[in-house]
Amino acid sequence: MIAEISDLQFSYGRIKALDGISLNLAEGAVGLLGPNGAGKSTLLRILLGFLAPQHGQGRVLGFDIRQEQPRIRRYVGYMPEDDCLIPGMDAVTFTAYFGELSGMPRQEAMKRAHDVLFYVGLGESRYRLLETYSAGMKQRLKLAQAIVHDPKLLFLDEPTSNLDPQGRKEILELIQDISSKKDIQVLISSHILPDIESVCSEVVILNKGRLAAQGKLSELRELHYRLYEIKIKGEGEGFAAKIKTLGCRVEETEDKILKVYVPAEMDIREIFRVAEEENSQVRHFVRSRTSLEDLFARAVGVD
């Protein structure tokens, strides 16, 4: 288990950032999702040990989030969202420096810095001043400093932001490679849902400081609802309105296909019964794979 937290509460003054969150983050790559203000950053702050929760308990990698914050940070790698560097340094010195601050001996940190810079694709430019790096290179550098001390847990905050498609693909490949090592757990906070979908096996969705959904992507897709794509000949409005009353959520695409989210407990034959009642002919009826975007929208209650 990467982290276990129970009934976590945190407020910034009157604003409740986290409201009684309980989580068990399993091993592997976990995606942390939520709209702005959902409490993702606050949860990360608490997991990293920067903030002490006002209520609730928790352990990260077995260390108490209240008592053992420095020990948590020793074994955690953190790749922040913002650009961050130290001017006047080259990538090797920068990466080795943060390795040393994590507790690596100087010589070892320097050796390892060369290795991880080659790994993230900055081998050729490792002696260049950081100020001259492009956005993509800075992103790779942030990843390098996060993995230089071989952390057990890696927090990645928007790892693919500001990247072109090729750069994004390469960073995702690196993350996939890292998370495929059984003894490195990865927690990714991102707004780019396809990224999470391609890398993570499990997601945590937060909304307004509460846990909106959590679990393995495959299970979440199955458990909450089934998605069908339906095409109707004739007037579809009455049909859509009627199946909405049965508890389904209906979306109409530009090419007039209805995306119907059917609750798990509902009998699918109900849809055909409604079509018959409305004199609508079902021309197309396909079970669709729910995307993370669908799941996210449903969990946070937005279209």
């Binding site: 020793r74 074994y75 130290i86 006047g88 340094m89 010195t93 420096y97 040393e100 601050l101 994590s102 507790g103 690596m104 001996p105 100087r106 070892e108 390892r112 290795d115 080659f118 790994y119 694709g121 081998g123 993995i147 001390h149 071989d150 690196l174 490679d177 890292i178 495929s180 090592k181 003894d183 490195i184």
Partner: peptide, 30 residues
Amino acid sequence: IREKGYTHWDGQLRERRFPWAPITWLGIRL
């Protein structure tokens, strides 16, 4: 190294007596 994939570091992280010392040395060098 990139083709080999991610490799672990086989050393041991240690608690420094003066964890701030690298900051000082870097500041002096810069």
